[in-house]
Design a protein around this nucleic acid. Structure first.
Lengths: 340, 340
DNA sequence: TTGAAAGCGCTAACAA
DNA sequence: TTGTTAGCGCTTTCAA
């Protein structure tokens, strides 16, 4: 553990050091620092010089203490490095940075009470302007429940839910469109391989089911995959054994790639024997063999919209309850009519 | 832009509110907060109760001001969402969180002076315990130069460099090993497709060149790729036209996948006609067709080691100059002897 | 245009 | 065991 020991670096200069060196009062230094108020050219330059010489930086802690709104936005997520998460965070950070905010990220490793409490508490220990919670998974959902109402908060999700303002990517509609497309190609039904859901059922699964039912098609039991492509591979191998499956809709591209690999290893051809669709439009989806039919999700835009909602909230405004957008289906070469 | 408007959320409770409600003095509240000193069971429970009721959280800003070390670590990077970056950040965050730190991320979009200055300034405006700079690219390198020496700082890189303490993944050695392996298979030389380097030459290129020279093999002119797999594809197509290239060593897996795709599209077989090696062991590398021979880089471990260095620095200790580790070559199926 | 004084929310030192 | 008194480094009145 870290001990509170004296730091070996020299104590950094403070504002009074600058004032003394420049021969002015502390508030005057503060004035030139903030570009505000009137300061004579003479003093201003003296102060600037002193700042340079001392390599002075105002203490962020002191500034934060004094009235000023904190300039930190916390992002809470169950994961930071998987494609969708990373891109969403990128979108948040980019927008936030543009407005002068820094973003912190903290991951909640599981939905277990103690883990969630510890992570949230860590987050709240910083001086925060607001928080964005990625509700892509159970840890995210659990974390949201623990954020005090007094802190401006928005969430990000794949489905509309009541609660704090929310940026959403309307997955269900896109999923339904995928199924429509596949059924239109002549497939009798569409198998679904889903990623770990954030709740009982995620938007992709809901949309898939809805479309199947709307078409009067048989609704197969969804197969659960993990987050790793490897789990898709195993499922692909298993699916290959069932001649009834001619079309598979996967919860994300990585899983789809794994499924394709498993199918191929088991001797099936994609899309000749079975069509496979992913979700997300991962950068490698178009490089895949065959290039993957998938759904483009603008994660960065999603993050950016979440920031927008939060900004309104922080400013004391009343943002829309939802900022919703519809992902786009991208048809490439992993889908075709079923074998005759 | 965000205006400094009054917030609509109620002003959060402060320590004096708790003290008043509990009928004790402010320092007493502080004492129970910090678990220190003697406080009677009676008052302690009164205070706890007041804290609960008010949902009070001590102001991090005030705490930071008063001697206590801030609990925020800033990560500065040229990117946050690409595989290696995201994983490295994950490693940092995980270790930092374990020790009670939150991590902020801010990206530096280019090495342009103004951009770098703005980003760094944003970072320094937070009360920081220390900073980790990802020197994987020019923006990262530029940012490092702007961090004041008074702030505990470590960097992360693929090659050893003088300066602040550094966590390194010894790319050059691994790259050399790849070339040794390929040459051992019988290839006359190895073409190199590199990702945008952080400096004149990155470790992967250095190791590749070194091994080639050591074997007395011809050293081809490296081909520059971008970060997108798509750029690899174009290069692959171009490379297919040159019968002299039978082995290609790529700067990362995404590029390698693009190269393989380009090669394949141009009618070459991998590894029959040309062998391709990637770098990073991306999660999809083993799913690829053919499964990719690559180099496993433990990015999360790298991030974790960087945190370790920083922790020592923050505690006032003197960390090693380098925490170096050697990536491992992973041979899969995208490499074979050259065609007869 | 400038400085003196007050105070942000908290912890540390000192008495009691 | 507890309260009183001082600040931490800065910004913000308020006078001058």
């Amino acid at each position: 553990m870290l001990r509170a020991m004296p730091n070996n670096t020299p104590k950094p200069p403070v504002i009074s050091d600058v004032a003394r060196r420049a021969g002015v009062s502390v508030p005057t230094v503060s004035r030139v620092l903030n570009g505000a108020a009137y300061v004579s050219e003479e003093k201003r330059s003296k102060v600037m010089k002193a700042i340079e010489e001392l390599d002075f930086r105002p203490s962020a802690a002191a500034r934060a203490l004094v009235a000023r709104q904190p300039k930190l936005i916390a992002v809470i997520a169950g994961n930071t490095s998987r494609y969708g998460y990373a891109e969403t965070i990128r979108g948040i950070e980019e927008s936030a940075r543009g407005a002068g905010y820094t973003v912190s990220i903290t991951v909640v490793e599981s939905a277990e009470d103690e883990i969630v409490a510890r992570a949230v508490s860590l987050v709240l220990d910083q001086p925060l302007a607001g928080v964005v919670v990625l509700k892509f998974d159970p840890p995210g959902v659990a974390a949201l429940h623990r954020i005090p109402k007094s802190i401006p908060t928005v969430s990000i999700s794949g489905v509309r839910e009541v609660g704090v303002p929310q940026a959403v990517l309307a997955e269900a509609d896109a999923a339904a469109e995928v199924v429509d497309y596949l059924l239109g190609l002549g497939h009798e039904t569409v198998q679904h391989v889903r990623v770990p859901p954030s709740r009982k059922e995620d938007g992709r699964t809901t949309g898939w089911r809805r479309a199947l039912v709307a078409h009067g098609a048989r609704v197969p039991v969804p197969v659960d995959a993990g987050w790793e492509p490897e789990s898709g591979r195993e499922i692909g191998r298993a699916l290959a054994a069932d001649p009834a499956v001619t079309a598979v809709f996967c919860g994300n591209d990585e899983i789809a790639m794994g499924v394709i690999r498993g199918l191929t290893e088991a001797g099936k051809s994609v899309p000749g024997d079975v069509s496979v669709v992913g979700f997300d439009d991962h950068p490698l989806a178009r490089m895949w063999t065959p290039p993957l039919t998938t759904v483009d999700q603008d994660f960065a835009g999603l993050g950016s919209r979440a920031y927008g909602l939060l900004e309104t909230l922080i400013a004391g405004g009343k943002p829309k309850k939802f900022s919703s957008e519809r992902p786009t289906v991208i048809i490439r070469e992993s889908t075709a009519p079923p074998p005759a």
